[in-house]
């Protein structure tokens, strides 16, 4: 025991130090370890959560982007279709209009032509009448008597008819 005494081992102090350690352990557990471990857990949970969330958001964004791209694609396709259809319709309308215009023009020309024909006929008719009258007057003058106007006119008409038919031949 002499050696141990010289080292200073004493039971009361030893017990006191063990108790000290126990107290320190308890107090530090309450004051430091428990809150800090809780906070570590909380923090790591939060970090994990935010990482997960970030991942989720990233995924969502990718999905949305893809969707938007798809939508744009379909929209552009649709647009192209629409334009093509419009062009086609326009072409059709143009063609229809062209055909209509042509027909109308044809009709107009036809009408004009018939008008001209009629005018000409009328003019020729007038001229022929006037000419017959003139001939009658002239004949009256020559014969100095009034001829039967109607009878003469008929003759003249006939002559003229003949001359025309002759001419036409």
């Amino acid at each position: 025991m002499e050696g141990i005494d010289e080292l200073g081992v004493s039971l009361p102090t030893l017990i006191a130090q063990v108790i000290n350690f126990g107290i320190l352990f308890l107090l530090l557990y309450l004051v430091a370890y428990r809150p800090i471990m809780r906070m570590f857990d909380e923090r790591s949970k939060k970090i994990k959560d935010s990482v997960d969330q970030a991942e989720y958001i990233k995924e969502q964004v990718a999905r949305t982007e893809e969707e938007a791209e798809k939508r744009i694609e379909t929209a552009s396709k649709e647009g192209q279709e629409l334009v093509a259809r419009a062009v086609k319709t326009g072409e059709e309308v143009r063609q229809k209009a062209e055909v209509g215009a042509k027909a109308e023009a044809e009709v107009l020309i036809q009408r004009a032509r018939s008008d001209i024909q009629r005018e000409r006929d009328e003019a020729i008719d007038d001229v022929r009448k006037a000419f017959a009258d003139l001939m009658v007057q002239a004949a009256e003058k020559v014969i100095d008597r009034s001829l039967d106007k109607e009878a003469h006119r008929e003759i003249i008409e006939k002559v003229l008819e003949e001359s025309i038919t002759f001419k036409k031949k």
Partner: peptide, 28 residues
């Protein structure tokens, strides 16, 4: 109960440790 000077020192250490961590972790 004999109180050794080393015991007083270890109380001092305990007080420093507990008070320090309490002061820091109070507003964690």
């Amino acid at each position: 109960f004999p109180v050794a000077n080393s015991l007083i020192a270890s109380w001092f250490t305990m007080i420093v440790l507990v008070a320090g961590s309490w002061a820091i972790m109070r507003r964690v």
